[in-house]
Design a protein around this nucleic acid. Structure first.
Lengths: 213, 213
DNA sequence: GCACAAGCGGACCGCCCGGTCCGTCTTTTC
DNA sequence: GAAAAGACGGACCGGGCGGTCCGCTTGTGC
C-alpha cells in the first residue's frame, strides 16, 4: 500500500502514512467502519494527531480505504475473465470473489451494503468493471434479457446480505454456494426477460452527492 | 399498540407507555435504530426519565418494537396464504410484503439486515411463520429440492439489500419486482436441487445469545 | 377530601469519539 | 553540525448519547 502525494512527505511521515492505511484496513476489516480513530492510530503505532495531520477527517480515511477496494474489484474482474469454460463462469467467479471479500472484511461489507455512500468516480469505476465481467455471459446469450450492470452490482449486495445474516455472524462457507446459485439461476437466460427497471447505482450516487452539497 | 403488564400501571403511565411505543416505531422507521432516546421521548411528549422508567434500557425498547414486527410478519403470512391462484403465489406475496416493510421502515430493515440480534423466541416465531408460507409451494413441488425455511428468511434479507442500495437511498418501487423475480426464479423447481447447506438462523441466534452471556 | 404511592421531567453524570493545540523531537539542508 | 522546517504525540476540548437523581405533581383508595 504505497501512496504518492504532490508535495512529497518527509521519509518518516510517508512511512507513518502507509502504516496508518494498513492498520485502518485491518481494523476496519475486523470491526467495521465505526472502529475509532484512536484505535487505528494505536495499531499503526502513531499518535492520533499524526493521523489527523494526514487525513483531514475520518471520512477521508474511509474513502482512501474504499479506493483500495475498488482496485481489488477491478483486479478480481481481470482474474475472473480468464475463466471461460462456460459463458457464466466469469460472472460466477466474480460474485464468488465478492462474497469472500465481504465475508472477510466487515468494512467492505458495510461499504457494499447500506452504510456508506462512495464518491461518484468510484461507483463509475466499479460499474465499468462489472460491465466487463458480465460481457462474456451477455455475448453468449446466457443472461436474461434486460440484465444490466446495475443488476450485477445489486447481486453483490444481495449476496453480502445472504452471508451476514446478523450482527456478529457469518454464514459458514459451505452455505455460500447455495445463495450464489439462487442468484445465478435467477439471472440466467432460461427465465425469460427480466421484469421491471434496473437499479442505476451511479445515478443514485450522483443524486445523493448533489443533495448533500 | 396496547401493552399489558402483570402489575397494572396507573392510567397516565399506561397511556405514556403506549405513546412511547408509537413514537419509537415512527422514529425508528424514519431514522433507523440509532435514533436517540431523547428524540423518541420528545416525540412521545414525555421526559427521558419517563422513558427509562418503562424500559430499563434502549435495547429493551428495540426488542419491544421488534416484537411488533414479528406479529406483523405472522399476519402477513396469514394474508399471503389466502392467495392461491398458483403454487408460488403465497410465497411471492409474502416476500413482496417484506420488501414493502423494509422499504418503509428503516428499523425493520436494519433488524432484518445485519445490525441487530433478535431474541431466540422471536426468531423461532418468524421461522415458523416462514415455514407456513412456503408450505403450499413446497407441497405443489414448486420449490427446488432442499429449500428450507432458513432460505426464505435469507431471501427476505437479500431483497432488503436489493432495495436499499446505500445509506439514505431507496430503490423506486418499479424496480422491486425485478429482484423479487430473480429470487423467486432462483428458488423454483425447474432449477434442480439446491446445492450446499441451508442457513439456520435459529441455531445462529442461539449461538450468539450463548456467546454474549 | 386527604394522604400517599406512583408518576413525572429537567438537570445532571460519565463515557466515548472526532477533532485540535502546543511543547518536543527528527529530518533535511547548507 | 547547526538551524529551520516539518513531524510527532499526549493532553485537551466539545458534543452527543445512554442512563440516573431528585424535587415536584397527579392519580387512587379509603
Amino acid at each position: 500500500m504505497n501512496v504518492s502525494n504532490a508535495f512529497p512527505l518527509r521519509a518518516d511521515a510517508q512511512r507513518n502514512l502507509e502504516r496508518i492505511l494498513v492498520a485502518a484496513r485491518e481494523a476496519f476489516a475486523e470491526g467495521g467502519l465505526d472502529v475509532g480513530v484512536e484505535e487505528i492510530a494505536r495499531r499503526a503505532g502513531v499518535g492520533k494527531a499524526t493521523f489527523f495531520r494526514r487525513f483531514p477527517t475520518k471520512e477521508a480515511l474511509v474513502h482512501a480505504v474504499y479506493e483500495g477496494f475498488v482496485v481489488e474489484v477491478e483486479e478480481a474482474v481481470d482474474r475472473a475473465l480468464q475463466e471461460d469454460d462456460e459463458p457464466l463462469a466469469a460472472l460466477r467467479a466474480f460474485l464468488r470473489h465478492s462474497m469472500t471479500t465481504q465475508a472477510g472484511n466487515k468494512a467492505f461489507f458495510e461499504a457494499v451494503a447500506a452504510r456508506f455512500v462512495p464518491p461518484v468516480e468510484m461507483t463509475d469505476r466499479v460499474m465499468e468493471a462489472v460491465a466487463r465481467v458480465m460481457a462474456p455471459a451477455e455475448a453468449a446469450g446466457a443472461l436474461r434479457e434486460g440484465v444490466e450492470a446495475g443488476d450485477i452490482s445489486t447481486a453483490t449486495k444481495m449476496l453480502g446480505a445472504a452471508i451476514r445474516p446478523m450482527e456478529g455472524l457469518l454464514l459458514p462457507e459451505a452455505a455460500w454456494d447455495r445463495y450464489l446459485d439462487v442468484v445465478i439461476c435467477g439471472l440466467s437466460a432460461d427465465q425469460g426477460p427480466l421484469p421491471g427497471v434496473a437499479a442505476d447505482p451511479c445515478a443514485m450516487v450522483r443524486e445523493v452527492s448533489a443533495k448533500s452539497v
